[in-house]
Write a protein that binds this DNA or RNA. Structure first.
Length: 558
RNA sequence: GGGCCUUUAGCUCAGAGGUAGAGCAUCGGACUUUUAAUCCGCUGGUCGUGGGUUCGAUCCCCACAGGGCCCA
């Protein structure tokens, strides 16, 4: 329940002007290195007075920590202070002092640092804690804090032992020293709890199981460097893609996610409702149709990196919401877009630190090195399939013949499928998984992409390609169909299919057709699955590339 | 949609038809140079949920739910 419902006074406070303090300044003066107060001390009186309630279950770690929080409050110590002063990060201390001091020596420099307690080693009169902070690129920095009886006194030392737990954020102020074992440390002359952890940290010596990792990503991020690094790697990739596009004078736009008519892809949409207009709406399944409208208007080089939503299956390569790049460029065609794609992927590989040689799982599970610097071959669907099955296949080949080939290669097919659909499926099942090196697969039959235009020279195929890397489609591009009459015919056909029950068919978008009727310049368009690109570079499943993936609700058995 | 695997302490995992164990964590004690600290001691469980078989089920069977992998 929101707090301001439970406690009306909070709501009043938020609503009205502050009157309780004379000062308008929300900050009060704080001595940055305030010495430890008596309230850290454990004395004869308060030990008994404070001692945990008899009914406290000491095995319930949350209850134990809640009790410690109460005890801090009881001493007038804030378990969650509003502002904690520090002189700098753990990484800065490491950078400045690592390797400059001999074991057992002191630097004479005093710093104030903060971090989460990851390990704690309390001896009788000297306590050690390993503090951790998140840093750039996701690599956590760690630094040791030392709490010595000689420096902080008996009461504060007892307070540290009694009230600081693994997972707490603390502030430690003191001299930078190097321990006898050579560990760079801060020897505290004061410390405070910067944020009390009520829930215990997962153990750091065993990986969280997969479910906990995705359900509680925050815990995963605390304990696993690779989880943090993924966040930064993904950001490096999207930043690099933006840089590549900007270097070609592209502009980034944001188009509607809530749509009256969904289109631009063949997929089932999520349905929702806009109360203000009493209007059913859908979440977008692609960004294509709005970006093309922008090109009609003279935004000649335009792109969007954004989330799209498809109400379909969920598995290790499919997520209901995922991120795509779509870019459209006037006066370009699919060959221009192939150059853009190649440049973007190579730069992204550099930017995320993977480089041009990428290891992927091959068709039989063995590792294969993908060479992004090699030639990116073009492969026509019909000749490609012909070679793979050892038999000439052309747009004239009958469905009957193709079905026999499917049977021979143990590809299950729907008897209702026509020749074109069979070719697409056979290629996808037989040839595609074998394509490890970057390959532009082109000359698809028209059924593969209902909105594509016919090839300028080759009859019976369309002017588009799919980019396959590591046996998986990563992106696609078209010489876009800009003839509003043909486009209208295609959309009419799609809506006929929708009426017949094809729930993946596109909706008829009159406004989009109106835009095309004003005249769209010849253009190339490109789509790139960002998640799949991150998967390629990091070798993990889609659920690991998405920070907070969608999961079924947790079952509550309590 | 089909098949296989999985669900046991806060976390990671063993286990067996007779009411359950380890490591770490918690709690108590010892320890001024540790670093996954160490040592001593005490705790901690609806064995995912619901049925069934059985004298007895956490274990065997069935269904359901969550998670994973493979196939479609």
């Amino acid at each position: 329940m929101p707090r301001n419902q439970a406690d009306p006074s909070v709501g009043q406070k938020a609503a009205g002007p502050r009157t309780s303090t004379g000062s308008r300044c929300p900050f009060r003066e704080v001595a940055p290195y305030a010495p430890i107060g008596d309230n850290w001390g454990v004395t004869a009186e308060n030990t008994t007075a404070e001692t945990t309630a008899k009914d406290l279950n000491t095995n319930d770690q949350r209850a134990v920590r809640m009790d410690k929080r109460e005890r801090l409050l009881g001493r007038g110590v804030q378990p969650f202070p509003v502002k904690v002063e520090r002189t700098g990060s753990l990484a800065e201390v490491r950078k400045r002092f690592d390797g400059t001091v001999e074991a057992g020596e002191s630097t004479g420099e005093t710093v104030s640092v903060t971090g989460r307690v990851m390990f704690i080693r309390n001896t009788g009169k000297l306590c050690f804690a390993t503090l951790q902070e998140g840093g750039p690129e996701g690599a956590g920095s760690r630094l040791q804090a030392m709490i010595s009886l000689a420096e902080v006194g008996e009461e504060a030392l007892a307070g540290w032992k009694a009230l600081v737990d693994l997972g707490d954020h603390v502030r430690v102020t003191g001299e930078v020293v190097v321990s006898r074992r050579g560990e760079l440390s801060v020897m505290a002359n004061s410390f405070e709890i910067a944020s009390k952890a009520i829930r215990p940290l997962p153990v750091l010596h065993a990986e969280l199981n997969e479910e906990t990792r995705v359900r509680q990503r925050y815990a995963d991020l605390i304990v696993r460097d690779e989880a943090r690094e993924m966040v930064y790697q993904r950001a490096a990739i999207t930043r690099s893609i933006r840089d590549s596009l900007h270097s070609h004078d592209y502009v980034e736009v944001e188009t509607p996610m809530l749509q009256l008519v969904h289109g631009g892809a063949q997929a089932r949409p999520f349905e929702t409702h806009l109360n203000a207009f009493d209007q059913d709406m859908t979440l977008r399944i692609a960004t294509e149709l709005y970006l093309k409208r922008a090109v009609v208007g003279g935004i000649d080089r335009v792109y969007e990196i954004g989330r799209v939503f498809r109400n379909e299956g969920v598995d290790s390569t499919h997520s209901p919401e995922f991120t795509t790049l779509e870019s459209y460029e006037a006066w370009a065609d699919m060959y221009t877009m192939a150059e853009r794609m190649q440049e973007m992927i190579r730069s992204a590989a550099d930017a995320c630190g993977v480089g041009r040689q990428v290891e992927v799982a091959g068709p039989d599970g063995e590792p294969v090195t993908v060479d992004l610097d090699g030639e990116w071959k073009w492969l026509s669907v019909y000749p490609g399939l012909s070679e793979a099955v050892g038999q000439e296949i052309t747009p004239e080949t009958s469905a009957e013949v193709l079905r026999r080939i499917a049977e021979k290669h143990e590809v299950t097919v729907d008897p209702a499928w026509g020749a074109q659909k069979l070719v697409v499926e056979l290629f996808g099942e037989i040839v595609e998984p074998q394509l490890m090196q970057p390959t532009f697969v082109c000359d698809y039959p028209p059924i593969a992409q209902p909105l594509a235009r016919e090839h300028r020279e080759k009859p019976g195929v369309i002017e588009a390609w799919d980019l396959i890397i590591g046996g998986m489609e990563r992106g696609t591009a078209f010489s876009e169909l800009v003839d509003p009459v043909v486009q209208r015919e295609r959309l009419v056909e799609q809506s006929r299919m929708a009426a017949e029950g094809d729930d993946e068919a596109m909706q008829y978008d009159e406004d989009f057709l109106r835009a095309l009727e004003y005249g769209a310049p010849p253009m190339g368009g490109l789509g790139l699955g960002i998640d799949r690109l991150v998967m390629l570079f990091t070798g993990v499943g889609i659920r690991e590339t998405i920070l907070f993936p969608l999961l079924k609700p947790e079952v509550d058995n309590s």
